[in-house]
């Protein structure tokens, strides 16, 4: 088994300077390991810091202490200490992220939003668009929407574009933050399929799943967090 993510003694406290320097501790001494081919679910009540931990793994949130080692190019990179350039490389080739909401870019059509992670690692335009088209049809986004910018899409459509984008480049590590929150049953089933497929391809996944059905269908293991 290959450890794809190793987290040691991670702690995070938000300090709100604009509100008199109030300190909000989120979690402390979090440790976990994720192996290739498994899907670890972060579990716990709301406010337990699941999303924050996920964001720390992606380098979007800076922890106060501890280490986050991510498997990249055959070595472990400590995301908590890596410089921006390194984090960008890790994100390009080793670690994907599906956020709760799509951050739409003006004027860029849905097809290219999904193809972008592939373009970033040098996949030719045609091939990248072809893969993007497969994912979009799998997630049941009507073809007439592909050439439009997702800013005007419904919440559910935006989220499916977001999921397609996250799965496009087949990163060895994928982080999922409530990917199915605004989806109906059929689309949820498609996402479950995608996750199961990723596991079978020996990719490592970490997720926060609000939905019991999804969690039970995809989780290899639970990592329980207390508020």
């Amino acid at each position: 088994m290959t450890a794809m993510i190793e987290v040691d003694d991670l702690s995070k406290t938000y300090v709100l300077h604009t509100q008199g320097g109030v300190e909000i501790p989120v979690f402390a001494d979090a440790s976990l390991t994720v192996e290739a081919g498994e899907c670890l679910t972060l579990h716990g009540p709301s406010g337990a810091g699941k999303s924050t931990l996920l964001r720390c793994l992606y380098g979007n949130c800076k922890p106060n202490g501890g280490a986050i080692r991510i498997h990249h190019d055959g070595a472990m990179v400590d995301i908590a200490r890596a410089d921006p350039r390194q984090v960008i490389e890790v994100r390009k080739r080793s670690m994907g992220y599906v956020s709760q909401f799509l951050r739409a870019i003006p004027r860029v059509p849905a097809l290219d939003v999904v193809a972008e992670p592939l373009r970033a690692i040098g996949v030719p335009l045609d091939q990248a668009r072809q893969r993007a088209a497969e994912l979009l049809s799998r997630l049941r986004i009507p073809e007439r929407l592909w050439s439009l910018a997702p800013a005007t899409f419904s919440g559910g459509e935006q989220q499916r574009v977001n999921i397609a984008r996250g799965f496009a480049a087949r990163h060895p590590i994928l982080l999922l933050d409530e990917p199915t929150a605004s989806l109906d049953a059929e689309n949820r089933a498609q996402v479950i399929d995608l996750i199961v497929e990723a596991k079978s391809e020996k990719r490592a996944l970490v997720g926060v799943f609000h939905d019991d059905e999804v969690r039970e269908a995809v989780s290899t293991r639970l990592h329980t967090m207390r508020g």
Partner: peptide, 20 residues
Amino acid sequence: GLTDQVLDDPHHPYTQLLVS
């Protein structure tokens, strides 16, 4: 820092003010 990290998790009081 990384753009999204600085904007989503600003640490310095001034950056927090700017973002908020």
